[in-house]
Write a protein that binds this DNA or RNA. Sequence first.
DNA 1: TGTTCAGGATCATATATTGAAACGAGGGTA
DNA 2: TACCCTCGTTTCAATATATGATCCTGAACA
Lengths: 263, 263
Amino acid sequence: MSTIEKALGLLEYFSASRPDIGLSEFKTLTGVDKGTLHRHLTALRNCGYLEQHHTTRAYRLGPAVIRLSIVREKTVPLVKTVESYIDRLSESVQELAHAALPEKKGMTSIYSKDAGSHGTRVSFDEAEILPFHATSSGIAMLAFSDQDVVNCVLSKPLESYTTTTATDAKDVQALITRAHASGIASANQSYETEVISYAVPFFGADGEAIGTIAIAAPASRMDAALAEQCSNALVAAGQSLSRDLSGHIPPHIAGIWAKRLES
Amino acid sequence: MSTIEKALGLLEYFSASRPDIGLSEFKTLTGVDKGTLHRHLTALRNCGYLEQHHTTRAYRLGPAVIRLSIVREKTVPLVKTVESYIDRLSESVQELAHAALPEKKGMTSIYSKDAGSHGTRVSFDEAEILPFHATSSGIAMLAFSDQDVVNCVLSKPLESYTTTTATDAKDVQALITRAHASGIASANQSYETEVISYAVPFFGADGEAIGTIAIAAPASRMDAALAEQCSNALVAAGQSLSRDLSGHIPPHIAGIWAKRLES
DNA sequence: TGTTCAGGATCATATATTGAAACGAGGGTA
DNA sequence: TACCCTCGTTTCAATATATGATCCTGAACA
């Protein structure tokens, strides 16, 4: 693995719940030598990708990422496009909707919206990492990714989050296969108890899945009628969103989706 | 210079006006060997910081920057904070206001707002690179940066944009010195003809300038009264914004600014 | 006072980076 | 069709660079 990838991999450790990381903390997180870490972090800081608290000396993400995201969004207005779909989804089913993109360690939520008419809500944070094997977004993503990617994810130890999380590679593969066949993934309290969610991928110009959109609701509210409503809304949105992004939906998925919407 | 910095430097070449860059184009832009470039670009792509058009093979910024900017904004809500100030500034003087952060090659605008009640407007794009020596934002930034940084900028050839652009290091240094003494920088048609602008820095926790806010107006409208109004609004906003960011305004600037607002 | 932590310096070793050159896929032209 | 470009990609040997171990400094903390 190149030095570049190692250094950039360090940025993945930052999250909303872990915004600052010190040198020693990095050492325990990564297992990399202290000297090497210090060199890499310094390089990232010099480029503006990290900044350092002047007293605690801890690192956090720097201002350079702001420009990149603005330029990226001007190049490909993905977030802006996705936002309007999520807003409409959340409005139409009156539940939490969100969109996520794949990263190395899981799906990263990039936008979420809760219509919020109910007393109980699904709690959710953007920039949260959603594990592939335990969330509908993750399963939906894997179901339309290369088998190599799937194998890579399944070859690592699969953490358990609730009593019903599938932690056996074979079980997860079954979920993936089912999602691939049906064009939609679901998760029944496999990441958070009392939460059921559905997710579909959306596709890019190459016909590859580039992200997912999902709806999550408390298990108590997710009866067959709501499940059907969510599934249909997601499939319709997945179709339309892929088109908006000038994406190409793989033929067999296009067929399955179209069939579902007809009925 | 480390490999990491070289590779990350490649990302700086992407902008709103140059969203896609092919390998050969990179070669002419950077002068780096083709093989080396390919290796670096591939590493960046593997990390998600670039993505590649599957037919043209050109690179553009990838989805990984989205997550970083969300995490960054959750860590330090700089953009969000700045936006409200820019909105108010633009509203109060009825001219274009914008905020910018320093990058290696110039100030990068991160947010702009034009009240837009006038027929003639200053044209402006976010993510644009504003040269340090020719814009009020650049001068305001340099005026409150280390002299090392200033020297580094002034040691490079200074491009001319209009007939009145200061391209001599000594002249630019004079502008910087004046801005440092007065607490506010101005630019009279030095970047775009018929545009006059004013800018002040805002400060971070270390007492260092972390960015600038500015107002730009057509020269025809910028009379003494408007100039005074802009300056006062900027100074007040610079004070308040620095405080909002839990920043520390260097004593001598705090004094100059306070004095200006008293009168 | 003792401890923890960031950072800096040094150095032998192993490894990754480099640049040149060759390769192969398209796209155009005659 | 044959030829010639250009462009992205791969290969490889030489070498520059990264690595990780060790020791040291100084600051913050209890």
